[in-house]
Amino acid sequence: MIKSLYPCLWYDGNAKAAADHYCSIFKNSRITAENPMVVTFEINGFKFMGLNGGPHYKFSPATSFVVECETQEEIDYYWEKLGEGGSYNQCGWLDDKFGMSWQIIPAVLQKLMSDPEKAPRVIEAFMQMSKFDIAALENA
């Protein structure tokens, strides 16, 4: 039986800065160990490892972290904090200043998308959005 399963994120020498950044944004987060090669940290009880692997590999949107938000205030907060110094994309996606892709989505999205009548209007609405607007989706 495996003891744990967690992602290892490859950074170009700035794993500690990335871990500090993420821990400053998410409540209940902390650095659990560090050495010159790796830093391990937890975000809301989920373990991550940051590896100072060098310039050989870069992040891509093929891997992203989803932050499911209950309120518009949460969406606004994570959108601003994680996107600062990075770039904002379509449909709730952003790349942070370290190149990691994030999806900042409303928790209600799954419910809205499961309604066969409403789903096409919801898709049409969010395809026009960068940051999700919960009220606009609910009124679509």
Rank of each mutant, 00 (worst) to 15 (best):
112 L>D: 07
107 A>G: 00
123 I>R: 06
117 E>H: 11
124 E>I: 00
115 D>K: 11
123 I>V: 14
108 V>A: 13
122 V>K: 03
108 V>D: 12
133 D>N: 09
129 M>W: 04
126 F>C: 03
123 I>C: 03
133 D>W: 02
109 L>H: 03
133 D>V: 02
120 P>S: 09
117 E>G: 14
105 I>S: 14
135 A>F: 00
121 R>C: 06
108 V>C: 15
111 K>G: 01
106 P>C: 11
132 F>R: 07
129 M>T: 05
128 Q>T: 15
134 I>S: 04
124 E>K: 12
131 K>Y: 02
107 A>S: 09
133 D>H: 02
111 K>E: 15
127 M>D: 04
126 F>W: 07
105 I>G: 01
107 A>P: 00
115 D>Q: 12
129 M>H: 07
126 F>L: 11
129 M>I: 05
129 M>Y: 05
109 L>V: 04
113 M>L: 15
117 E>L: 12
134 I>N: 05
126 F>S: 02
135 A>E: 09
125 A>K: 13
111 K>M: 09
116 P>V: 08
130 S>D: 10
111 K>L: 07
115 D>L: 08
127 M>W: 01
108 V>F: 00
105 I>M: 12
117 E>Q: 15
104 I>T: 09
113 M>Y: 10
123 I>M: 14
130 S>I: 00
104 I>E: 09
127 M>K: 09
112 L>G: 08
135 A>H: 03
117 E>D: 14
114 S>D: 14
127 M>G: 02
112 L>K: 08
110 Q>N: 13
103 Q>G: 12
128 Q>C: 11
117 E>I: 10
125 A>P: 00
114 S>L: 05
135 A>K: 12
108 V>P: 00
105 I>H: 03
111 K>N: 10
117 E>Y: 06
133 D>P: 02
121 R>Y: 13
106 P>D: 11
119 A>C: 14
112 L>T: 08
133 D>M: 02
123 I>D: 03
131 K>C: 05
111 K>F: 04
134 I>G: 04
108 V>H: 01
125 A>L: 00
120 P>N: 08
106 P>T: 11
123 I>S: 04
135 A>M: 01
124 E>C: 01
110 Q>I: 14
123 I>F: 07
109 L>M: 14
128 Q>W: 06
126 F>A: 03
115 D>F: 12
111 K>A: 13
116 P>K: 06
109 L>A: 05
135 A>L: 05
131 K>V: 02
128 Q>K: 15
108 V>W: 00
121 R>T: 06
128 Q>G: 13
132 F>W: 08
114 S>T: 13
126 F>K: 03
104 I>C: 08
114 S>N: 14
123 I>T: 08
132 F>T: 07
104 I>P: 10
133 D>K: 02
128 Q>F: 05
126 F>Y: 15
121 R>N: 13
103 Q>R: 12
120 P>I: 06
124 E>T: 09
104 I>Y: 10
120 P>L: 08
105 I>L: 06
118 K>T: 06
134 I>E: 04
105 I>F: 01
128 Q>R: 15
113 M>K: 11
118 K>S: 05
115 D>V: 11
107 A>R: 12
130 S>H: 10
114 S>G: 01
130 S>W: 00
124 E>Q: 12
116 P>I: 05
125 A>H: 00
114 S>K: 11
133 D>T: 01
103 Q>K: 13
118 K>N: 07
120 P>G: 08
126 F>D: 02
135 A>Q: 06
133 D>E: 07
103 Q>T: 13
